[in-house]
Design a protein around this nucleic acid. Structure first.
Lengths: 222, 222
DNA sequence: CTCAGAAATTGACGGCGCGTCATCCATCGC
DNA sequence: GCGATGGATGACGCGCCGTCAATTTCTGAG
């Protein structure tokens, strides 16, 4: 708790932030840090807003100045993660000149990320004792859409054969998350091996996939 | 709801069930039916035990004679589904003589199931407005393990090349769920098309997948 | 420096969902 | 019939929920 924010250096210097703004920032971080802690310990389902508040020096009313519910806190945490990885993924995909580069860079980046982010990845999937949970927030879903757009673009540029971009996106997402999860469950975490597996699996398939009539596939738009 | 169990013949006649046992059965079904209804309407997260009780003619205490929590109710519902589909899947896979048969029958059965089960499949994934949820109960997870065992068996019998069974299982599961979800989101639900896509995607890949050193892959056992 | 107004924090409060348990009733075995 | 027993009932105490009037803290004008 008291270890909350180390940040003397955070603001480095030359920050014309009023005391008020500063406290607001700090309180928000206080809450997020407490929430990460509590979610990790109890799982999302079992956590109550009061649990988070208690892990904080703040009063209950203050919490509600920052977030409406535990869902909103969770979303803020996940969105941070999603916003951190999305640009990396996108960058890799954009410079991909071949299907192979596109797919393998996506999986490599994702698996590396999962491997050293486990905190977040495990924390929240590992909920109740026996039941597995996966929650996708809007920002994460936006990442999926971004992938689909990139696939469509790649198809239009002739990098990909004209296949069903929507389904392919879904398949990549499914493989990434499921294989990623198995990967971190093993004693020897090996993101490179997981990425290699996923890449090889999908690459071979994409080549033999039935081509769709019209490239710019209207698929999921509706 | 009332369609719960296909076998209407169950109670028909010649049932030496005491009044007591009969009411117990009926109450359990009452609760499960109410829960399906309420989960569909509010989503899992927003549903309270009281909501389920209110959708029932029973008193609150009675609920707790049957289930400990909404999680347990949910699990019972999901397990019914899992137990309905697992034997079908397993049967198909066991008679598969080739990789192609193995994979395609798995996806076909799964997609058909998803397409006309939507009730259950959508109901629970579609939770809060913006946030997507996926909950896997123990019975569902056991289905995953079963798939892995079947893959290992197929490898030992030479039907499959010696690849990483654990990862392949994860990949199949991921593709099945994600593509399945996209499929039911489309206006024209087409389970056959979804199954064909998934099959083609994985089949091509499996052929080119790097072979693992030792067939009986120790992979996930630990 | 002072002070009035704005902004943000506080914690007590009414409302409600939780799981329990003493009580009651319907069924069962005789 | 008649006690005994398994199960249904719903009121209860507890804790979490989100709110809001009172209070403290900060800001900027004079």
């Amino acid at each position: 708790m008291e270890t909350a924010l180390a940040k003397p250096a955070v603001v480095t210097r030359a920050e014309p932030l009023g005391k008020r703004e500063q406290t607001k920032l700090q309180n928000r971080e206080l809450i997020l840090a407490a929430a990460r802690q509590v979610f990790a310990e109890l799982g999302f389902g079992a956590t109550t807003v009061r649990d988070i508040i208690r892990a904080t020096p703040l009063a209950s009313g203050t919490f509600y100045n920052y977030f409406k519910s535990k869902e909103e806190v969770y979303q803020a945490i996940q969105d941070d993660v999603a916003l951190a990885i999305r640009p990396r993924l996108r960058e890799e995909r954009i410079k991909a000149k071949t299907v192979e580069e596109f797919i393998s860079s996506t999986f490599r980046t994702f698996m590396d990320f999962v491997a050293d982010d486990q905190v977040n990845f495990r924390t929240i999937r590992h909920t109740a004792d026996t039941t597995r949970v996966r929650l996708d927030t809007p920002e994460v879903i936006a990442g999926f859409e971004e992938l689909r757009e990139d696939i469509e673009k790649a198809i239009n540029e002739g990098v990909f054969p004209p296949i069903d971009a929507d389904f392919l996106m879904a398949a990549i997402v499914g493989v990434a998350f499921e294989v990623g999860e198995r990967m971190i469950l093993r004693e020897r975490r090996d993101p490179a091996a997981a990425a290699t597996f996923a890449t090889a699996l999908l690459l071979g398939g994409i080549r033999t996939l039935p081509h769709v009539a019209h490239p710019a596939a209207r698929t999921g738009t509706a």
